[in-house]
């Protein structure tokens, strides 16, 4: 078997927030020991709310941030904190598409100029660049009339197409998609998802798809990993995550999606709301990071960091989940004391 395209092992990214010489605050653990693998041509969805560290994962993989600990392998090669020549491989094989299609295009440069940057950087001959730019636009479904426009003349969907085109310019193998559709309307979102799927088929791309919206990945991702406060809580085949979500956090995420059909309504787990809100990663709780919000939390959860259990194909990081009872003790005994709210 060949090595997976991307392999991340116990990745850690801590941010030092001390500004003065005499401060001694603990670092913010944005990513705290996550592991994941993405195989060639597959899509892994990384789900999480704000503050979960999901974007930091992508930014660390592509070396915008330096990893604090752990290992990142690209096609078997260790690219954690890469050397100079490795950096070149990364920049030409791994690309990132940002969330906000507007802010990642320079407002003072035409589309054509923005698209030329990666071509120049990868050393495409000058006389070939024009043609390549046109090919890139065509590939994402735009005509060459957009070449000399400024970003503000394009709609959100068109801008995201340009961003995808730019990422594809260097002919990458792995695309990190950081919420590529969450700034878009649904009717446009569907188009972009469609485009990404076509491109994956055509160019045999591998995707790491980062989003807060579980529903988007249902038909899109082969595997799904759910992140909360820097840790992966549940990871497994998308199908299984949706059909029988195990971790209380995944269940809460799924149950809070406003669905649009009765069939979906049945599909959604019963409402198991979480208390309060996501705490700042600065003050991550002890034990299981979800325990102050979790409806199934026991005393054990606040004391002890949960181990990962393997349930069928799914990895769940939860103490309260018991495989034999297929769920939670608290669910079986008292079902409805979860709706009260406290700090």
């Amino acid at each position: 078997m060949t090595a997976p395209v991307l392999e991340v092992k116990n990745l850690e990214k801590y941010f030092d927030t001390n500004t003065g010489w005499f401060e001694n605050k603990p670092p913010v653990k944005a990513v705290d020991g996550i592991s994941l693998t993405v195989d060639e041509g597959e899509t892994l969805a990384l789900i999480g709310e704000s503050g979960s560290g999901k974007s930091t994962v992508a930014e660390t993989i592509i070396n915008i941030h330096e990893a604090t600990g752990g290992l990142i392998r690209y096609q078997g090669e260790d690219i954690t904190n890469p050397l100079k020549e490795q950096l070149e491989t990364i920049r030409s094989d791994i690309q990132l598409v940002f969330q906000d299609p507007t802010s990642c295009l320079n407002p003072r440069r035409t589309i054509e100029k923005s698209l030329r940057v990666p071509l120049k950087a990868t050393g495409v001959a000058k006389d070939k660049r024009n043609q390549r730019v046109q090919e890139m636009l065509e590939r994402v479904g735009l005509t060459d009339e957009y070449l000399y426009k400024y970003p503000h003349e394009l709609s959100g969907g068109q801008k995201q197409r340009v961003n995808i085109a730019r990422a594809l310019a260097v002919e990458p193998r792995l695309l990190l998609l950081d919420e590529p559709t969450s700034a878009l309307d649904v009717s446009v979102q569907a188009k972009i998802i469609d485009l990404l799927r076509d491109l994956q088929e055509e160019l045999d791309l591998t995707y790491l798809f980062i989003t807060h919206d579980l529903s988007v990945v249902r038909n899109f991702a082969d595997e799904t990993a759910v992140m909360y406060l820097g840790e992966i809580q549940e990871k497994g085949p998308t199908e299984e995550i949706f059909q029988s979500p195990k971790h209380p956090y995944t269940r809460a995420l799924l149950s809070s999606i406003p669905v649009t059909s009765d069939s979906d309504e049945e599909y959604r787990p019963d409402s198991e709301p979480l208390r309060g809100e996501v705490p700042s990663p600065r003050e991550a709780p002890s034990g299981c990071r979800l325990h102050p919000r979790c409806p199934h939390a026991t005393e054990e959860c606040s004391m002890q960091h949960p181990d990962t259990q393997q349930v069928d194909d799914v990895e769940v990081q939860c103490i309260a989940y018991k495989e034999e009872s297929e769920g939670f003790e608290s669910l079986l005994t008292a079902t409805n004391d979860t709706s009260t709210e406290s700090q």
Binding site: I64, S103, K120, R166
Partner: peptide, 23 residues
């Protein structure tokens, strides 16, 4: 983000300074 994007695309520092930032 557009500066980040240019960096990831492999743009040189002088390109980022004078072509992306300056305008």
């Amino acid at each position: 983000e557009y500066i980040q994007a240019a960096k990831i695309s492999g743009a040189s520092t002088s390109h980022i300074l004078f072509r992306e930032l300056l305008p």
